[in-house]
């Protein structure tokens, strides 16, 4: 999902996850990824900008701490692949960084902050198509707020957050925002 414009969540927003909850959720996701993949072999983590990228890095650090191996981390920008490009003024793309080993034959775990309509993930799958052919693609998200518009689901979820469409989910991460937490408003 795209970044909200203002960093500070409004006063009436409810805290859904605090910094420690996020840490625990990412630790669990890291273990789940390792369990599912039977180790860190062939694993590549790709964060979807902007907030998926620091999340992917954090998961990689935890995997290294557990398994003692470096996991390649990259970024996959989906701006040019979105199906709603014409609904907004053109937004500039963000960096795509594919780790040196490439994606062919790898197990790619896409990492994003919020799973909502599923359209970002669809765009990410299309973008990946132009960059290589992974053996397996999985999806890890910090928050799944429901309201899917496409047949897409996450393999690893930090928190399932039932929400109404009129509500806003705000994820803030230390690396990008200088504060940490997930709010619902």
């Amino acid at each position: 999902m795209t970044a909200e414009s203002s960093v500070q969540p409004p006063a009436e927003a409810r805290v859904v996850l605090d910094a420690r909850d996020i840490t625990r959720a990412l630790t669990r996701i890291s273990h789940e990824i390792l369990e599912r993949n039977k180790g860190a072999g062939d694993l590549v983590l790709l964060g979807i900008p902007s907030r998926g990228v620091p999340l992917a890095r954090r998961i990689a650090e935890r995997i290294t701490a557990v398994e003692g191996v470096e996991v390649p981390v990259g970024a996959l920008d989906v701006t040019m692949y979105r199906d709603d490009l014409r609904k907004h003024p053109a937004r500039g793309p963000q960096p795509t960084e594919i780790p040196p080993g490439g994606l062919d034959g790898r197990t790619v775990v896409l990492v994003d902050d919020v799973l909502y309509s599923g359209r970002t993930v669809r765009a990410a799958l299309d973008a990946m198509n132009d960059l290589g052919r992974p053996d397996v693609v999985r999806l890890a998200v910090l928050v799944d707020r429901g309201h899917r518009e496409l047949p897409i689901r996450a393999d690893h979820v930090g928190k399932n957050l039932p929400s109404s469409r009129s509500e806003r989910v705000m994820v803030r991460l230390e690396e990008l925002d200088g504060l940490e937490g997930v709010w619902l408003a």
Partner: peptide, 16 residues
């Protein structure tokens, strides 16, 4: 700058 990176890719095509 991002488009410059696309120039170095194998598949030089974006659907925008």
């Amino acid at each position: 700058a991002e488009m410059h990176d696309v120039q170095r890719r194998e598949v030089k095509k974006l659907p925008a």
